[in-house]
Design a protein around this nucleic acid. Structure first.
Lengths: 199, 199, 199, 199
DNA sequence: GATGAATGAGACTTCATTCAT
DNA sequence: AATGAATGAAGTCTCATTCAT
């Protein structure tokens, strides 16, 4: 069913994808395909053989990213402390965004986009994240009136804020703590793995 | 210091700036300079006479935007209800972002950028916003442990989330309410002009 | 109504068009736009300013050609000897084709294409050619059972045959005489301006 | 002299050639080599193993075509009615051209080209066609003052006219009848297998 | 021999910027 | 000052051809 690829082709595809992620992360999605090819150490033709348009390449990068987040979320689904799991996942995603411009784009796309392709991978992420949220709510670590959609919007927004290159990391951390406080139940139970953020 | 300009030149500069804001808001900053010229009803040469590079034009648009926000913040500084003033301002900025792609870029730039030019206008905004925050804190509407920097980061992040075209506006509103809750003191006093957001 | 163009722009447009005609004539329509630009002595951007796609450029060349033929036909419409006029026009077109690869393409397009643009200019050519045919038929120089469509098909075919670079011109001439004989009435009246072709 | 080839290699060569004929016929000679490979059901490497350049492949297709015409002509050489044989052959070639873009190219090449390779196969066609013409002339079906060269030029031109996709087939047929009339002796003996074309 | 992945020159096209009118 | 034509570097993509598997 999966059309078998030659080992070298598979290797090159991976190299290109990795290069693309790194280049787009560093310079934004307007970086040139040529640059991706150079970074990957392949000819420009090879990039286009694997991803027939630049858009397809971009999409593949985003899908890869979402898949990775999906796997992380899925693992945390089985963690002992649901509150820590949820907030830890959130923090981890945002931290990656701090170095990767493309992350927030990916998250937005996942949250919104009707692109079928993305859906294939956005689906798993959403599913695992939904579980993370529910478990945290049951454990009283997250207020019960927030839904998946709001969480994704906050994730995207926080990631973007973090991606704004140059901002002081301590400011970022404190801003994120504020969002986390907003996500906790009104009585502010801690059960979060982090000390309460009020200073 | 200000080199006197002919009245018509001044008028053209304003037309170009307005057109640029509208075009970049609608199509993002990758819209072409030519399109700005057409929207402004002037020749492309005129655009470049007033703004020697595209980057300069973009920068002028952002400065203009920040200046407008600065004026709005400044006015609200004298409002009766400091909590309502602060949250109202926040909400207003985010609402504009929902239709203008460029807004979040502008806010990031203001929060971070070392660009001297921006600083000229980012300054007034920061100053007025700082007052808004302080007054809201004194009135007990905003927790006392947040600083201007965090507020700007949250403003930028929220604006960007809102700018992600296509998201359900109700989701956006609820996500914003969560951020607001995070900004309030732990005891959740109201004094906010909005009913408490817990549902 | 006609949007006035600057004199230099008009001059460049003409230079590009002439260069395109010459280049495409010599190397076929797959010659590169770059080459046209070089031949015209302008930058590549100038070519694309006047003709937004390569296809548009090609079309403009064909239209120009048809217009020229249309004017020639129109003039011959008023000639003293209708038979000589018709056959002379035919011969002239074919002679041009002998050096210009693009001519037969143009004629085919005119004969067939539904392209509106071409129609604008193909129309006059068809009209004048129809008159040429009718007058030649009334004068007994062309058989009465041929229509405009057949004449255009023969014109296109003969032009293409002539365009096949390298064929002996004397052979071309004799082949054309055979077609002309086929176009004359069965009794082979002369009134043709050319001596009867039987040798 | 002929380097022995493995049976499967020979089979692949034939598959590629057939695919090339079909693809170039349908899409013109600018169709990609890749497409030919796909149509043949072989890898691109195989195409280039058998035909070292695209030009060589194109040439092989033309040679194949001319060989086929040569065989048809050769057979008709022995037909009972020489007039019918000649005009029938002519009509048959043109009819094929109507669906195959490459035919007229092939005929031109044959008529003109100094390419040695073509000559090898163009030779037989020319020889057989010459016989066809002579016999038709002896039988009084074709005027005595036309030579092989003119006939080939008319064949190429007529084929091209027919290949101009989209022309009304009835127009094509009438145009061809006109050429045939031009090829007949002045007195218009019929002996042609077709009723006289005058209408 | 066959395969198809890799290559890179070159095609078309866009657009920021310059300059003659 | 204003205009818009001209410029050419740079971007995306195609395809004939080569080469490792």
């Amino acid at each position: 069913m999966t059309p078998r690829m030659r080992a070298d082709a598979l290797r090159n595809r991976a190299k290109v994808l990795a290069a693309a992620e790194s280049v787009f992360a560093a310079k934004g999605s307007s970086a040139s395909t040529e640059e991706v090819a150079k970074e990957a150490g392949v000819g420009i033709g090879t990039v286009f053989r694997h991803f027939p348009t630049k858009e397809a390449l971009l999409e593949a990068v985003l899908i890869e990213l979402l898949a990775r987040f999906g796997r992380e979320a899925e693992e945390l689904t089985r963690a002992a402390d649901p509150g820590a799991a949820f907030f830890g996942f959130f923090r981890g995603v945002v931290a990656q965004a701090a170095t990767k411009n493309a992350v927030s784009e990916a998250l937005e796309e996942a949250g919104i986009s009707a692109r079928e392709a993305s859906a294939e991978v956005g689906g798993p992420l959403k599913k695992a994240l939904a579980t993370l949220v529910e478990r945290a709510q049951e454990a009283g670590a997250v207020r019960s009136d927030v839904g998946l959609a709001e969480v994704m919007a906050l994730l995207a927004g926080s990631s973007h804020a973090a991606a704004s290159a140059g901002a002081d990391p301590r400011v970022q951390a404190r801003a994120l703590d504020i969002v986390f406080d907003g996500l906790r139940p009104a009585d502010r139970g801690s059960s979060n793995g982090q000390p309460a953020t009020r200073r």
